[in-house]
């Protein structure tokens, strides 16, 4: 079975692609330790890390904003999305098709359309742009992801447990808290984590619905790229990449742990 002809081609393409995917990250990591300001090598130095951690207060302010929005929007999206998925999965009701459709559409809408329409909408209802509008926007694009992930989880479990719970006299609330929610935990957790990641990551939609004083990390990085590149961005990138790797590993182990339970 081991000898499969033609693996050579796909292997070559795969490793070249990995090179392509990782080259930019490696370049950033290497140059974050460069003492010179340009791309020519001036020797090893930690000066840009020092600058990032000690001098760049705005980065940390932006990071704080990003975290606040990510956690709050992911939490609200997780609550709404989970309940929505349970309702759609378990019951038949009048607007079911509609809920399914509006929970699917944001996934396939180009980000710019969501951003532009929300900006025009907020202007129309005269809502001041700021952290609140960013929170609303993020909750809206996060909700469908949580909804789908919980729905996928609910689709695969055994319905007879719920029937059993009802037959044994459990109330709706008891069934929800003692049966439905516990089995949905993997879906809820991965939905929440995805929502946090997407929120921390989002640039385009945030760009349109942010106002003065509500700079998030991606917006800050954008202004760094646009108006005067300082090598601090290299060290910031490396910190973010390290964070990504860490979260990827943690999420994987966490999901594995849940799956085993």
């Amino acid at each position: 079975m081991r000898v499969v002809k033609g693996r050579g081609f796909s292997r070559t393409v795969f490793f070249l692609t990995m090179g392509f995917l990782f080259l930019p990250l490696v370049v950033l990591i290497v140059y974050s330790f460069n003492s010179a300001k340009s791309m020519s090598w001036g020797g090893f130095s930690l000066v840009w890390y020092e600058r990032l951690f000690l001098k760049e207060r705005n980065v940390w302010k932006a990071f704080e904003n990003s975290l606040i929005i990510a956690v709050s929007s992911a939490a609200v999206a997780t609550c709404l999305g989970t309940l929505g998925a349970i309702g759609v999965n378990w019951y038949k009701f009048r607007f079911k098709k509609y809920v399914q459709a509006v929970a699917f559409l944001p996934l396939i809408m180009p980000e710019i359309i969501i951003g532009v329409s929300l900006l025009i909408f907020f202007a129309g209802i005269q809502m001041k742009l700021g952290l609140l509008t960013i929170f609303i926007a993020h909750t809206s694009f996060n909700l469908p992801f949580v909804f789908l992930m919980v729905l996928a989880r609910l689709d695969e479990f055994d319905y007879s447990i719920i029937e059993a719970s009802r037959d044994l006299g459990a109330t709706e609330r008891q069934t929800l808290f003692k049966v439905i929610l516990p089995v949905s935990v993997p879906g809820i957790v991965s939905g929440f984590l995805t929502a946090v990641t997407l929120s921390l990551e989002d640039f385009v939609i945030t760009f349109f619905v942010s106002g003065p004083g509500s700079t998030t990390l991606p917006l800050y990085v954008y202004s760094m790229i646009r108006f005067g590149v300082s090598p601090v961005i290299n060290s910031l990138s490396v910190v973010l990449i390290a964070g990504t790797v860490l979260i990827t590993l943690l999420a994987r182990n966490f999901l594995k742990y849940i799956a085993q339970k």
Binding site: L83, G84, G87, V88, K92, F93, F147
Partner: peptide, 11 residues
Amino acid sequence: NYGPAYAGPAG
């Protein structure tokens, strides 16, 4: 039928 109550907020 709690369907609308569950899915209402998201909708």
